[in-house]
Computed example of a mutant assay.
Amino acid sequence: MREFDVACLTPVEPMSGKEILALREREGVSQGIFARALNVRPKLVSEWERGEKKPSGPSLKLLSLVKAHGLVAII
């Protein structure tokens, strides 16, 4: 653990609705399946994709992991 530092962490940057939609489509899943993998409501995924709401906290971290490593990284 002494070798573990910030450089080992997946960077977390804000994501636009278009980026989230593209990410979900890249993974080939519906909003419902994507929501279930992220442990959020399908309506929230829809709101993110339309730009009505922005992901933050744990959801944004999970989206960053999916972006970097694919959906399989979180399920």
Rank of each mutant, 00 (worst) to 15 (best):
Phe4Trp: 08
Arg41Trp: 04
Glu27Pro: 03
Lys67Thr: 00
Cys8Phe: 05
Val6Ile: 15
Met15Gln: 07
Leu71Tyr: 00
Ser16Asn: 09
Arg50Pro: 00
Ser30Gly: 08
Gln31Glu: 06
Ala37Lys: 12
Phe4His: 08
Arg2Tyr: 14
Leu71Arg: 00
Leu21Val: 00
Leu23Cys: 07
Lys67Asn: 06
Gly32Asp: 08
Leu9Pro: 02
Ala68Pro: 00
Arg50Tyr: 04
Pro58Asn: 12
Leu9Lys: 11
Ile75Gly: 03
Ile75Ala: 03
Pro11Phe: 10
His69Ala: 12
Val45His: 11
Leu60Asn: 05
Ala22Trp: 01
Met1Glu: 07
Glu3Trp: 07
Ile74Thr: 13
Gly17Tyr: 05
Lys61Leu: 11
Leu62Arg: 15
Thr10Ala: 04
Leu63Met: 07
Val12Gln: 07
Arg26Cys: 08
Lys53Tyr: 03
Arg36Pro: 01
Glu19Met: 13
Met1Asn: 09
Arg2Met: 13
Gly17Pro: 04
Arg36His: 12
Val72Gln: 10
Cys8Arg: 03
Met1Cys: 08
Arg41Leu: 04
Trp48Ala: 03
Pro14Asp: 06
Pro42Phe: 04
Lys18Ile: 00
Lys61Ile: 11
Val40Ile: 15
Leu44Gly: 05
Ala37Gly: 01
Lys18Leu: 06
Cys8His: 12
Leu60Ser: 04
Asn39Met: 10
Arg26Ile: 10
Lys53Asn: 11
Glu27Gly: 04
Lys43Ala: 08
Ala37Gln: 09
Ala35Asp: 09
Ser30Arg: 03
Leu9Cys: 12
Asn39Lys: 15
Leu23Val: 09
Gly57His: 13
Arg2Ala: 15
Pro58Thr: 13
Leu21Ile: 00
Leu21Trp: 04
Ile75Pro: 02
Pro14Cys: 07
Met1Thr: 10
Ala37Leu: 06
Arg36Ile: 04
Ser30Tyr: 03
Leu60Glu: 05
Gly70Tyr: 06
Leu62Trp: 10
Pro14Thr: 08
Glu3Pro: 00
Leu63Arg: 11
Val72Cys: 01
Ser59Thr: 15
Gly28Asp: 14
Trp48Tyr: 15
Val72Phe: 01
Pro42Arg: 11
Gly32Trp: 02
Ala68Leu: 03
Glu13Lys: 14
Gly70Ala: 03
Glu13Trp: 06
Ile74Val: 15
Ile33Pro: 00
Asp5Ala: 09
Ala35Asn: 08
Arg36Asp: 12
Ala7Ile: 01
Pro55Val: 07
Pro14Leu: 06
His69Ser: 14
Pro42Ser: 05
Glu19Arg: 15
Pro55Leu: 07
Glu49Arg: 14
Leu63Pro: 04
Ser30Lys: 01
Glu47Leu: 12
Ser30Ile: 03
Arg24Trp: 11
Glu13Asn: 10
Arg24Lys: 14
Thr10Trp: 00
Glu27Met: 05
Pro42Tyr: 05
